[in-house]
Write a protein that binds this DNA or RNA. Structure first.
Lengths: 119, 119
DNA sequence: ATTATATATGAACACATGATCATATATAGG
DNA sequence: CCTATATATGATCATGTGTTCATATATAAT
């Protein structure tokens, strides 16, 4: 085995494979967006909010009541979820009624549950 | 509409619905584990590592070369991925060859890609 | 108009997290 | 045994993140 341009002196994979990896990995920007997307699910409060919205749409006030989260924290988190395109809301009198935007969310969370329960 | 034990004076959902939400939401501990699980995907470096391992198994050294990440940072991240049960490795001489542990990972990442590209 | 209720938001703060640096461990070769 | 190579790991540090607090905005009711 001749040494390669790679960092390892005793390389284990073929140079062509390294080349292939570099070609096959998705665009850097897509991966950044992807990480940002998953970051949303990486918080217990947000996961609980989404779980609650699986059952029914709810106003901010009821959401914070049900989950035991302060009104302010709830509002901040809902803003995050809105900006991520995971929830939508409509105004109804003084209230804002939040609901899930689509069902990718449930699909992703369910896959996660399957993974961790199978471990 | 009579006032309820809920926080909102003008409640929008039925008390029974609130009850149902509280019953239907998964166990608190499961949701914490779930958030911890997704937290792993919420980092660009880790997403890039997983993406590279989709193509082929690789040693630490080659991985850091391919992704342009320092050896130390790579080792730390691989430890995180190992502890999350997403990658496994075997020793081969001086090297440690890492690979994906199962294919839930690819499934989850693919679902994420579908979501963000459809937006 | 004034007051109460519902939600949103900016600032501050405490805590988590990821990278770096230095160093330890492990294995192979001479 | 000594050295070089590959990987792991603890400590430090800068940055990111989520909550709280105070306050602003919006709508409804009297």
């Amino acid at each position: 085995m001749k040494q390669d341009e790679g960092k390892c002196k005793t390389y284990l994979i073929h140079p062509n494979t390294v080349e292939k990896v570099l070609q096959d990995i998705p665009q850097e920007e897509l991966l950044i967006d992807l990480a940002d997307f998953f970051k949303i699910f990486g918080d217990t409060t947000r996961i609980r909010i989404l779980s609650a919205l699986f059952v029914t749409e709810m106003c901010v006030c009821d959401l914070s009541e049900v989950l035991g989260v302060s009104q302010s924290a709830m509002s901040h988190q809902l803003k995050t979820l809105r900006q991520a395109g995971l929830v939508k809301y409509r105004k109804e009198g003084k209230s804002a009624v939040y609901s899930l935007k689509d069902n990718h969310v449930k699909q992703i969370i369910d896959t996660g549950i399957i993974h961790i329960t199978e471990q």
